[in-house]
Design a protein around this nucleic acid. Structure first.
Ligand SMILES: [Mn+2]
Ligand SMILES: [Mn+2]
Ligand SMILES: [Zn+2]
Ligand SMILES: [Zn+2]
Lengths: 153, 153
DNA sequence: AACGTTAATGCAAACGATTTGCAACAAGAA
DNA sequence: TTCTTGTTGCAAATCGTTTGCATTAACGTT
């Protein structure tokens, strides 16, 4: 199974910048898209290795960093106690999405809440005015137990 | 200058659990309270060392972990690219507070937005119902440039 | 189809933030 | 003052991630 959408976009960007599309990059992109969402570098690595056991972890990191620099993914640290990043494939529409983080199994679930956007706009302005600062972004992270972990408890 | 409030509470807890109040812990607590807010372990260490150059960084970490386990501070990672924690002294009233993070100078500013709480309650319930999960906490993090960094730009 | 340039890889070593094992130390109860 | 044992400093280990370098391979040119 191949995922042409992101892979093609990346190949285009790659070409435009004198880069090269490699088997490793193709594999990592496929795994990234097959993954339900927000995998860590280690998770991607483990999955990709099933297809190519010679793949190196540093290649995964280099690819993710390359993708991040071009805005194809954005890294997030949901966990305050464990240090790893989760890589969030950026959706083409640019729509703002928020996250739920399961503190038991580390799963991440996306959600959008249109009502939040309005309030965030309001808050952003208010805070900005109040403190004389410039708000560029707002992230809402809910945490707790995901459906599976609730079931198991 | 000494800050008796938190220090006394901590001493009490310490006593109650067979622990010992040491010069190092007193110092770290003082520096933590003198700091405007949300210092990192390294920041606390640097400040505390001005009073006691023999203080060791691992003692700072051990003290912060001890405080965290008893709910006196809570660690937060505001930065998605740098891995360090900021330590947030937990306010006694238990009131929910949100944060602004300056992505230029790493400063953290607290704010409370009562309007947010209502909406968060609403969202929490909605998301929980929709996905069958349990939401325990919600954190809103704004990011951008703080007043000083805005001025310098 | 073979070539040449140079981007990308694998590997191992370095890195920043934090944690840990252990021997020496010191708080505080007796 | 002594004794017990929680705490410290120090060094080494750990975790997630990054980097230098020799080797490989993508892909435009021939
Ligand atoms: Mn995680
Ligand atoms: Mn920071
Ligand atoms: Zn879970
Ligand atoms: Zn700033």
């Amino acid at each position: 199974m191949t995922f042409p959408l992101l892979t093609d976009q990346v190949t285009q960007t790659l070409r435009a910048q004198g880069g090269r599309m490699t088997a490793q990059r193709r594999l990592i992109l496929d795994v990234l898209q097959a993954s339900d969402s927000h995998p860590t570098a280690e998770e991607l690595y483990a999955l990709a290795r099933q297809s190519d056991p010679s793949l190196n972890l540093s290649t995964v990191y280099r690819t993710l960093n390359w993708l991040e620099e071009r805005g194809f993914v954005s890294p997030r640290r949901f966990d305050d106690n464990h240090a790893h990043k989760h890589f969030d494939p950026v959706q083409p529409d640019g729509g703002h999405v928020h996250h739920f983080h399961c503190r038991k199994c580390d799963r991440v679930i996306e959600f959008s809440a249109p009502q939040v956007e309005l309030l965030l706009e309001q808050i952003r302005g208010e805070i900005a005015r109040q403190h004389g600062l410039r708000v560029d972004d707002a992230a809402l992270v809910l945490s707790g137990l995901c459906m599976d972990c609730v079931a198991k408890s």
